[in-house]
């Protein structure tokens, strides 16, 4: 087991013990905040596949979050509340969107890729804003929280929390296997040196496209959870600012490590919540903190943690 795996294992153990502890401390509401952090951890994990392993800086990743959230909103509005239906629908919608937009945007590299993913993200945003049946710009409240095979598992805060934690652990395991597979090795190879990969016989495009689709689908799963968490869905879920925040989470935690982005997302959401209590100008301090961490800790929070251990 690598040091990264050990950190993740310790983190999951810690998170599993958290709700009863918070209950004892008389702060059960904090469970809700941590749930939100874990949902973003799932989204950050998916972005790490692109950013950290594929060196593909997608600035439109929030669109997938939004697709997941709107799928939950639309289906629950029609009385389809089962996660067993909502999740496959969200994954299919996001996968299709990723397939089409990825096939186009992956023809470009570097700044052009950033710009074109940003453009697709904003198109999704404006499309959602124009859905007047679903609240347009203002968004809409979810009619009912999702269920799982008829059971109201998301109704209670701690049930929801543990479902999210379990999904986070599953996604982490899935991506860990994926990035270490033959496929993952080729994807990482294209990050290291594209010309070399072509010279040994690999066309990067299909590998990148598959990564793009997988990442989009996982982000959509986070979107379904996020809609349930807020019981509300709005176009702002897929604005470019949200995409930028997810990039910050990945870089803050440590790109290309999987465990790092989980740490990054949790730190990001918790810092956001904490700082917002002290001052309305929290974004200023938060921005400064991110700049300092990225500048002075190579490999982000995880890098700092692993160095500190030695």
């Amino acid at each position: 087991m690598s040091a990264r795996d050990a950190v993740m294992l310790a983190l999951v153990a810690l998170l599993a013990a958290l709700p009863p502890v918070l209950q004892l401390l008389g702060e059960p509401f904090l469970t809700v905040i941590v749930t939100r952090a874990l949902i973003f951890a799932i989204a950050a994990l998916s972005l790490d596949l692109l950013l950290g392993y594929g060196a593909l800086v997608s600035f439109g990743h929030a669109a997938f979050l939004g697709i997941g959230a709107y799928t939950a909103l639309i289906l629950s509005g029609r009385g389809v509340t089962g996660l067993e239906l909502q999740l496959p629908a969200a994954l299919a919608a996001a996968g299709l969107f990723a397939l089409v937009t990825g096939a186009i945007s992956l023809r470009t590299r570097g700044v052009h890729f950033i710009m074109i993913t940003l453009a697709f993200g904003q198109m999704a945003y404006y499309f959602a804003s124009s859905l007047s049946a679903f609240g347009g710009d203002d968004g809409q409240a979810l009619r009912a929280r999702s269920t799982l095979f008829g059971a109201d598992v998301l109704a209670g805060n701690s049930g929801f929390y543990y479902l999210v934690l379990a999904l986070l652990a599953l996604v982490w395991l899935f991506l860990r296997a994926l990035t270490r597979s033959r496929f993952g090795r080729v994807l990482s190879g294209t990050r290291e040196n594209e010309a070399r990969m072509q010279a040994i016989g690999f066309s990067p495009f299909p590998f990148r496209l598959i990564a793009y689709v997988v990442a989009g689908m996982i982000a959509a799963m986070a979107g379904v959870l996020l809609a349930n968490h807020a019981s509300f869905v709005a176009p702002s879920y897929m604005g470019w600012g949200r995409s930028g925040e997810m990039i910050a989470m990945v870089v803050l935690g440590g790109m290309g490590t999987l465990t790092g982005p989980v740490l990054g997302a949790i730190a990001f959401v918790l810092a956001e919540e904490t700082l917002a209590r002290f001052t309305t100008h929290w974004r200023l301090f938060f921005g400064a903190a991110i700049v300092l961490i990225v500048l002075f800790t190579r490999g982000g929070l995880l890098g700092a943690l692993l160095r500190g251990r030695k």
């Binding site: 296997a177 994926l178 270490r180 597979s181 033959r182 496929f183 993952g184 090795r185 080729v186 990482s188 190879g189 990050r191 290291e192 040196n193 010309a195 070399r196 990969m197 010279a199 040994i200 016989g201 690999f202 299909p206 590998f207 598959i210």
Partner: peptide
């Protein structure tokens, strides 16, 4: 042109992989 972040062995193993079966395998550890 090498893959600087990969081990020396993995640089070469990837070239072997390129001509030994499909690289669209997603779970077994390469």
């Amino acid at each position: 042109a090498i893959l600087p972040g990969f081990s020396v062995l993995e640089n070469v193993a990837l070239a072997v992989q390129a001509r030994s079966g499909s690289s669209f395998r997603f779970f077994r550890r390469a």
